[in-house]
């Protein structure tokens, strides 16, 4: 039996006028895999991610995410994914439970399950006592963990994390990655971008975008062998230095 692919992209392309932001990228992501999506600023990561999330239509090529076609069924894509970014994830003025309820409601979590699931999640995170606290009063590390839990509250097949750990202290960053591993163990596929190269090492496989193309894709160990270097930092440096286009 063929492995189950949660993301399949084939020749996915996006042009803005004459500018090719994403240039025929082809790749698969397996169920439960932690897939690192790296690239320099301006390499096309955000544009590619927006297409995969059903927010932007490709100029050419095709992709399915969680079994849904991103062109024909963008609304079904959105219901079957979770999304979290460092820049936006929770409403700061709403209390912790209000945020959970809002996102749970949007993603169609059944009303009768909501209260129990909320309490379970907050106990697991060890912040049950903060249930009625406005999110803006939480320390950043807690906020990121809560945002991630909210992003997977409706048990999506895949969760997109756009630089989830930027600015977080080293200890909280590691705790965050342990949550990512737990989610992946439960079968949730994780698609993550990061500028921390040590975090690239935590991924099962990593792709590196340069000038809109995926120029390398393998396990971190495989990439280091392929480029004959000792760290992902050096792999990234070797590839990104070749980039022709500015930001």
């Amino acid at each position: 039996m063929r492995e189950e692919h949660v993301i399949e992209a084939e020749g996915l392309t996006k042009m803005f006028g004459t500018f090719t932001a994403v240039d025929h990228i082809t790749f698969d992501v397996k169920k439960g895999e932690i897939f690192g999506f790296l690239g320099a600023n301006g390499a096309g990561k955000t544009t590619a991610m927006r297409m995969l999330c059903g927010l932007s239509k490709p100029t050419a090529g095709r992709a399915t995410v969680a079994g849904c076609d991103i062109v024909r069924e963008p609304e079904r894509v959105k219901r079957n994914i979770g999304y979290m970014s460092q820049k936006f994830s929770l409403y700061e003025d709403l209390q912790v439970w209000e945020n959970i309820r809002l996102f749970g409601g949007i993603y169609g979590v059944a009303e009768r399950e909501m209260a129990q699931k909320t309490d379970d999640m907050l106990r697991r995170l060890g912040i049950y006592g903060e249930k009625n606290t406005p999110v803006k009063r939480l320390p950043l590390g807690w906020k990121q963990k809560l945002a991630f839990s909210v992003a997977i509250f409706h048990e999506p097949k895949v969760v997109f994390l756009d630089e989830p750990t930027g600015g977080v202290d080293p200890r909280a960053r590691r705790q965050f990655w342990e949550m990512i591993y737990e989610a992946a163990d439960r079968g949730i596929t994780v698609f993550v971008t990061t500028h921390y190269m040590d975090e690239a090492e935590y991924c099962d496989r990593v792709s590196i975008m340069v000038d809109g193309r995926i120029d390398a894709l393998d396990s971190p160990g495989g990439l280091k062998r392929q480029f004959g270097v000792g760290s992902m930092d050096e792999v990234f440096y070797k590839l990104a230095r070749e980039a022709k286009r500015g930001e």
Partner: peptide
């Protein structure tokens, strides 16, 4: 104040 936050490793260097 945080001139390199969110900047990729090559540009940071």
């Amino acid at each position: 104040d945080e001139p390199t936050t969110g900047v990729d490793p090559v540009s940071r260097k």
